[in-house]
């Protein structure tokens, strides 16, 4: 059985701006390796600028890796046309990025429509997904994003990412912009959802409590490298100084 995601020796260097030999490239991500199995959530934890979001974007090739390899459901990401690759990967970002001129229904049905599913099948799928993320389809399908609360918007964002039933989901601080109460509510629901979906997930956050709640494993990033990789329990007990710094903040 192939894993939703395998990452090997992933690296990303930013080309330097100088001229000639003095030109130095800056490494944003170095030698990152991990795998994510079905039903597993890998939380990438780290401070701002530690390379966790960059790692995420290297997986769906919003940034092109300068070294290493990514395999999604067994296929080399570099070999797939970039749009095909991305349609197999659900992507959720903090700002949600719903299309303001599309109804909730059209937003959620975006990838299926790009993949030319028959309209009836899209409609069924959209209703199914809205129900899954706790939004009543009859109430919400026809609304526009500006008619939704922040929490509702992110629910739609998650539904949209799941639409074409991708084996892998990438989430970049999806609950980071929500008020504390809504955030806890969505975290709890998401924790319950993870097991049911059976997908591989990579979840980026800087909130250690969120990471411990939602992750089946924690990958801790520091200056572009994975400095720790293990279960939440191992994370709690680790004497890695960066782990301890995060535990102290929890």
């Amino acid at each position: 059985m192939t894993k939703p995601l395998e990452v090997e020796g992933l690296g990303y260097d930013l080309p330097g701006r100088g001229k000639g030999e003095r030109r130095k490239s800056r490494s944003l991500v170095r030698d990152v390796s991990f795998t994510v199995g079905a039903g597993e959530t890998l939380v990438l934890l780290g401070r701002s600028g530690s390379g966790k979001t960059t790692t995420l974007k290297l997986i769906n090739r919003l940034l092109e890796p300068t070294s290493g390899e990514v395999r999604v459901a067994g296929e080399r990401a570099a070999d797939l046309p970039v749009t095909r690759l991305r349609r197999r990967i659900g992507y959720v970002i903090q700002e949600v990025g719903l299309f303001p001129h599309f109804t909730v229904e059209r937003n959620v049905g975006l990838v299926p429509r790009l993949e030319a599913w028959p309209p009836a099948r899209i409609a069924t799928r959209v209703r199914e997904l809205l129900a899954l993320v706790g939004l009543d389809p009859d109430t919400f399908a026809g609304r526009y994003p500006h008619e939704l609360s922040g929490g509702q918007r992110q629910r739609v964002g998650v539904a949209r990412a799941l639409a074409a039933d991708p084996p892998l989901l990438l989430l970049d601080e999806p609950f980071g912009a929500l008020d504390p109460i809504t955030r806890v509510e969505l975290q709890r629901e998401f924790a319950a959802l993870e097991g049911r979906l059976g997908k591989g997930m990579v979840f980026v956050t800087h909130d250690v409590r969120e990471g411990l709640l939602l992750g089946s494993r924690i990958g801790l990033m520091l200056q572009g490298r994975l400095t720790f990789l293990g279960t939440p329990d191992e994370f709690r007990r680790s004497d890695n100084p960066e782990c301890r710094a995060f535990m102290a903040a929890a």
Binding site: Y91, I93, V96, L98
Partner: peptide, 10 residues
């Protein structure tokens, strides 16, 4: 964010 979401979804 809208542009990134669109590109990210393929």
């Amino acid at each position: 964010a809208v542009r990134e979401a669109g590109r990210g979804m393929g």
